[in-house]
Design a protein around this nucleic acid. Structure first.
Length: 299
DNA sequence: GATTCGTGGTC
DNA sequence: TGACCAAGAAT
């Protein structure tokens, strides 16, 4: 008998220790999995849980969401952050209806062509919803592979093609086992091989970890610029959208003016929300979430 | 490739 | 307490 592979070690650990997340259930639809993946883009699991349940209770399939307004999608999105994802997810539902008869496609190229679906999400759906063999590399997998295999403290900020190659080489040949291994890598990175204080004492691959062997050196070089928030356009956008989200229908600009004193920055933020398809002008002096009521007369 | 894009929790 | 972080995508 040969030594168990890296994927086998992590998969065994996963089967004993995985969190009981609802989108991992046996009867979860590809649509529900797609929704979970989009919500989980940069948003912690604990905040996604209730939003995912509510979203699918209201829109159990793509056609239902496609038939509703962007405004309702934005409201249901709540405070998950990056609300453009809500609009894109609805655009995605429209595309699924128009291009694929309302069924989430199972081909990687078709998934990638959907709004709001990038390299990670397309592969995650293909693997977790359809059991295909694709490397699925998110920030967790990237960190696990960089540390345990390459022996490096951490990876760069974005997933690179090399990360996909390195991960693919770890996957079992059999597709279902490969999909399980991908979920296991993600879980390990999310729960054990975490960014700040990795729990090497309970790690299933501690004995073969290259980073561990090298003494767990800290990341080198200048740390990347921290993402500040206070005072940015993002904060102003969030404040503006908060008012529009709580309102029903158009809001006079005077009310929006109250959320931020700087006219220039406030106007820029509002224009950005309009450009991004989140907000639309109504008449000369009001704004609303896109589609939040009857169509705006043109001309 | 570097930026932009929310929100809230942790240490 | 403010820096850091959380299943990325689009430009």
């Amino acid at each position: 008998m040969s030594e168990p592979t890296f994927a086998t070690l992590v998969s065994r650990w996963y089967e004993e220790n995985a969190r009981d997340l609802p989108w991992r259930g046996p009867d979860v639809s590809p649509w529900a999995i797609l929704v979970s993946e989009v919500m989980l883009q940069q948003t912690p699991v604990v905040r996604v849980l209730p939003a995912w349940e509510a979203w699918l209770a209201r829109w159990p399939e793509p056609a239902a969401l496609a038939a509703d307004s962007p405004a309702e999608a934005i409201r249901m999105w709540g405070r998950l952050g990056y609300p453009r994802r809500a609009v894109r997810l609805r655009d995605c539902a429209l595309a699924i209806v128009e291009r694929h008869g309302g069924q989430v496609p199972d081909r990687l190229d078709q998934l990638l062509a959907l709004p709001g679906v990038g390299t990670y999400t397309a592969r995650a759906v293909a693997a977790f919803a359809y059991g295909q063999r694709h490397p699925v590399v998110d920030t967790n997998v990237r960190r696990v592979v960089c540390r345990a295999i390459a022996g490096e403290p951490d990876a760069g900020p974005a997933t690179r093609p090399a990360d996909l190659v390195a991960t693919e080489e770890l996957l079992p040949v059999e597709p279902a086992a490969a999909a399980l291994a991908s979920a296991a890598f993600m879980e390990l990175g999310a729960v054990v091989c975490v960014a700040r204080s990795p729990r090497c004492g309970v790690c299933p691959v501690e004995s073969v970890c290259a980073w561990r062997a090298s003494g767990r050196e800290a990341p080198a070089g200048p740390t990347r610029r921290p993402q500040r928030y206070a005072g940015t356009d993002r904060q102003v956008r969030g404040l503006l959208l908060g008012v529009l989200r709580e309102a029903t229908g158009p809001v006079p600009h005077q009310r929006l003016d109250q959320v931020w004193a700087d006219d220039v920055q406030r106007s820029r933020a509002l224009a950005g929300l309009v450009r991004d398809g989140l907000v639309e002008p109504v008449g000369e002096s009001s704004f609303r979430l896109v589609g939040d009521g009857p169509p705006v007369p043109v001309g």
